[in-house]
Design a protein around this nucleic acid. Structure first.
Lengths: 168, 168
DNA sequence: CTAATAGCGTTATCATATAACATCAAGGAG
DNA sequence: CTCCTTGATGTTATATGATAACGCTATTAG
């Protein structure tokens, strides 16, 4: 299963998945150029695979996908690329799944947060700053200095919830 | 390091740590009795260790602590106890650390959420329902059916932030 | 008492992640 | 251009986190 998730993605909404990948890579190129970061071949390839999968993807799955065509990269190759991409803000880690997903969001003001569907497996990054605001005020009240947030909401996405109620 | 965290805890606030452990165990006894769950010796011991550590504690650290005195339990022993305690709502998993912490909170209305200090390592469970409310409204708007939340805010607790600004 | 079942011990293995060191490639100083 | 520094990658080994599978034991319902 080299590129298993394309179908999953398309089963949901028929967006132009190719464009969504190339857009993400183009954005990554821009970001890296602006910040003097080197988006090397491996890093670019890992980012591409993450976007192609269109779901939170595990490090060892990425490794397998990289090695599917040719070669036999070792875990550090992937983890180093992931570290770089995380650092650059081009991907996020889904802590509750030990998996990684592409980021298409500007985090000047918002911290990452996700709705994760247990049915289709997809993780939607939500942008609202309301949650951040509430957390900020709660933190302030407690004298806690916020550094980083992990917000992952599991459940059923609208599409899957609809499908389920149709079945029953 | 059999019981390393007691000092850490006391370095912060001189609460009656013994009482806090025995209270937690008493509560656990009650909860289990009420729900027909069996808080066996091992499960009780694991819960006790988690409270004694007073910080998010890793499964293999618990294993080492169990084996410190006598015996040589294997990983499944600890993981089964942890699964039971999670299921019973007596502990939570801190996903960003693969660690476990005791729960002293009623989750009828609130989902678990934590402020985690990067300096002293302690995780404070916060009870406010504001965050839940905001997430609920965001979810509703998106048609997302919430099942479970992972909310972990990393940073500096009031005590450690104070200490740091004093030093500089 | 006895049968059913939940809990536990034990072994092996899978899954996730990193340490450490060798090698290579890109770009600046001379 | 060549040397040299530095950041990136290759490679091997290993640490850390979690579970599968199977058999024995202990609890408890009947």
């Amino acid at each position: 299963m080299a590129q298993p998730a394309t179908n999953v993605a398309l089963s949901h909404c028929a967006h132009d998945h190719e464009a969504c990948i190339t857009d993400a890579l183009a954005r990554a190129d821009t970001v890296c150029r602006q910040q003097g970061l080197r988006l090397t071949a491996i890093r670019r390839r890992v980012l591409e695979l993450i976007w192609a999968n269109h779901q939170p993807t595990k490090a060892y799955d990425l490794l397998a996908q990289i090695n599917a065509k040719r070669g036999n990269a070792a875990p550090p190759t992937v983890y180093r690329a992931l570290d770089f991409l995380l650092e650059a803000g081009l991907i996020h880690k889904i802590e509750s799944q030990n998996a990684f997903i592409g980021c298409a969001v500007d985090h000047e003001r918002n911290q990452p947060k996700f709705f994760i569907c247990r049915e289709c497996g997809r993780a939607a990054e939500i942008q609202s700053s309301q949650i951040d605001d509430v957390i900020a005020s709660e933190a302030q009240e407690a004298g806690f200095v916020v550094d980083h947030q992990t917000i992952e909401v599991d459940g059923l996405c609208a599409a899957c919830a609809g499908a389920e109620s149709t079945n029953s």
